[in-house]
Computed example of a mutant assay.
Amino acid sequence: MNIIRVVEPKEFPLKWANFNNYPESKAYKKEVYLKEFDNIVNGLIELFYNLFDNYKTNLYVYNDSWWDFTLDTWDFQNNTHDYSLDNKSKEVIDYLSMLKNSGIEKGYSGVCACLNWTNFLQIILSCIVSHQAIYSPIFYNAKENFFFYFHHTGSIGLYYEKESNAILNILNLANKKYLIE
């Protein structure tokens, strides 16, 4: 089953974003935290739908290296990668299977559209929360001019160039259910 698909253009479109150092992006930043930690993955999925459900039609996911997202694929000592499913954690098996089943070519760097948000988030967030991945892919909406990423502690970092009706709506929703800094 295809969960994601490659889209063009594959370059990240928000020129004000600084991926080398997010805080140096020419943007405002808000950190949105879960209040409860019973299950961080489920909590972050709920947060996603609560805040971004109205914007997910134009929401895309960028990753600089889709196949190198998880630590299990990297042999640190030899600086090589192994994308087989052998000797991998359940989270990494699910992730690599998603890439293969979705037809994402090895070495792909760029943008994907999500075809099944619930399955995608379950797979990605399980990798992030279990520390199988050391970073989050970037989720962005170019139409509304924002991006965000997930953090293993149960939060998202939200960046936006300027306040808009969409951002005010997202922040208003976040204020009702979550902690914001």
Rank of each mutant, 00 (worst) to 15 (best):
N2D: 09
I3L: 08
R5D: 06
V6Y: 07
V6S: 09
V6C: 04
E8H: 14
P9D: 12
K10H: 12
E11W: 10
L14E: 03
L14V: 05
W16Q: 02
A17G: 05
N18M: 02
N18K: 05
F19S: 05
F19Y: 12
N21K: 11
N21M: 09
N21Y: 14
P23H: 10
P23K: 10
E24R: 13
S25D: 06
A27R: 11
Y28F: 15
K30A: 10
E31S: 13
E31N: 07
K35A: 08
V41D: 11
N42P: 05
E46Y: 06
E46F: 05
E46I: 08
L47G: 09
F48P: 02
Y49G: 06
N50M: 05
D53K: 13
N54D: 15
Y55A: 06
K56D: 03
K56P: 00
K56F: 00
K56A: 02
T57F: 03
T57E: 08
L59Y: 01
L59R: 07
V61Y: 00
V61K: 00
N63Q: 13
D64C: 04
S65T: 04
S65F: 03
D68N: 11
F69D: 02
F69I: 04
F69S: 06
F69Q: 04
T70G: 01
T70K: 03
L71Y: 14
D72R: 09
W74I: 01
D75G: 03
N79M: 10
N79A: 10
N79Y: 09
H81N: 11
H81T: 15
Y83W: 15
L85F: 11
S89C: 07
K90W: 02
E91G: 09
V92D: 00
I93Q: 02
I93C: 00
L96S: 04
M98K: 04
L99F: 13
N101P: 01
N101Q: 14
S102I: 01
K106A: 01
G107M: 07
C112Q: 05
A113R: 13
N116F: 01
W117I: 10
T118D: 15
T118P: 06
T118E: 15
F120Q: 02
Q122N: 15
I123N: 09
I124S: 12
I124Q: 14
V129M: 12
S130M: 01
A133R: 07
A133L: 08
I134N: 14
I134V: 11
S136H: 07
P137E: 12
F139D: 06
F139P: 05
F139E: 04
N141V: 08
A142I: 05
N145S: 03
F146W: 04
F146I: 03
F150A: 08
H151R: 15
H151N: 13
H152G: 11
G154Q: 07
G154L: 12
S155G: 01
S155W: 09
S155N: 12
L158T: 01
Y159M: 09
E161L: 11
E161V: 08
K162H: 00
E163M: 11
A166Q: 06
I167H: 03
L171P: 05
A174S: 11
A174T: 09
A174Q: 10
K176D: 11
K177V: 08
L179S: 14
I180Q: 02
